[in-house]
């Protein structure tokens, strides 16, 4: 609210016109400032809640930060040493590789099933569709911790239903099979669970997209003699491509950060670095061995990974904004 500079020229003007001009410019300025006041609260909380932690992460990742610093010693700047250490660590690369493979396999499977279920919702009659939708909704609504608890019960070695049912298949011996013993079955189990919880969102989103494809276009193409698969490939899929693209992107980002799911499964009986994905790896390094600096460097790598994946999406949304 700085007062306007009064030039000699202006002094010559009559008192009243100055006041009017001042009033008008004040109102204008207030209108110009209004949007900034409106976003101030959001910016404030974002700076505190995410901005500062991100900056801290960046700074700490260039420092030597261990137990001594926990007790108040000043951290020493060591440049990119933490990154170099991390990137020359075979274990870290294994975790990154495992996370990426897990993420892309699960996201791909989720997308395929979600698309298939959305097409199925579109194809069946109203009653069956409602049954399918309610079932998907209930699975979607389950809090993560609750569904992980149920799934550990389903995969329980002694009394789990999964082992019981698989064991019923002739020739398959799954009696007291321990899913938590090897990383392969551990991540197979984790993949099944994460797919189960993510498919509903994808199915509903794509179904919402499908309902926007107009019946007239489909009828016209049927009259022109297009087969079912041609209609799917040439008309339906291109029309819902934007939804599919965004859903896939969100899914990839979400599956890259499956911390809660993996952590709870680990709690249920698997430890060791072979069972880690990026989230649990950072958690262990940061809280277990108190090596904040390496953990911060790993976090920054995850941040870069996520931002580079999201960049495309943000640009696309921005184009629509104009």
């Amino acid at each position: 609210m700085s007062s306007p500079v009064t030039s000699p020229k202006r002094q010559a003007q009559s008192e009243e016109s100055i006041k009017a001009a001042e009033h008008a410019s004040k109102a204008k300025r207030r209108a110009r400032r209004a949007p900034y006041w409106l976003i101030a609260a959001s910016i404030g909380i974002l700076l505190v809640g995410t901005g500062y932690p991100t900056a801290w992460q960046l700074v700490t990742s260039t420092q030597s930060y261990g137990l001594a610093q926990q007790f108040g010693a000043a951290a020493e700047f060591i440049g990119l040493q933490n990154y170099i250490d991390l990137l020359s660590d075979a274990e870290f690369w294994q975790v990154v590789g495992r996370s990426l493979v897990f993420c892309f396999v699960v996201a791909g499977l989720t997308l395929v099933l979600g698309l298939a279920f959305a097409l199925l919702m579109n194809a069946v009659n109203k009653a069956v569709r409602l049954i399918l939708q309610i079932s998907m909704l209930l699975a979607w609504a389950m809090p993560i911790v609750a569904s992980m608890t149920v799934w550990t019960w389903l995969f329980d070695t002694r009394r789990g239903v999964v082992n019981y049912l698989l064991d019923k298949i002739p020739g398959v011996d799954m009696y007291r099979f321990d899913w938590f013993a090897s990383p392969w079955t551990f991540f197979l189990m984790a993949g099944i669970i994460v797919t189960w919880m993510s498919v509903p969102f994808v199915a509903f989103s794509i179904f919402a997209g499908l309902t926007q494809v107009s019946d007239e276009v489909l009828e016209a193409s049927a009259l022109d003699g297009a087969s079912n698969s041609q209609r799917l490939r040439l008309i339906i899929l291109p029309m819902i491509k934007p939804v599919i693209a965004i859903v896939m992107l969100l899914q990839v980002i979400w599956d890259l950060r499956v911390f809660a799911q993996i952590k709870i499964l680990q709690d249920a009986g698997a430890s060791g670095s072979k069972f880690d994905l990026l989230g649990t790896y950072i958690y262990k390094v940061g809280t277990g061995s108190n090596d904040f600096a390496s953990a911060a460097a790993a976090s920054v790598i995850v941040l870069i990974l996520t931002i580079s994946i999201s960049w495309w999406y943000v640009r696309k949304l921005m184009k629509e904004e104009d």
Binding site: T54, W56, L256, R257, G286, V302, V314
Partner: peptide, 15 residues
């Protein structure tokens, strides 16, 4: 806003 929405909690929780 769009980018922050993508930031994983897993990458920030230590800070």
């Amino acid at each position: 806003v769009l980018l922050i929405q993508m930031l994983p909690a897993e990458a920030l929780f230590l800070a």
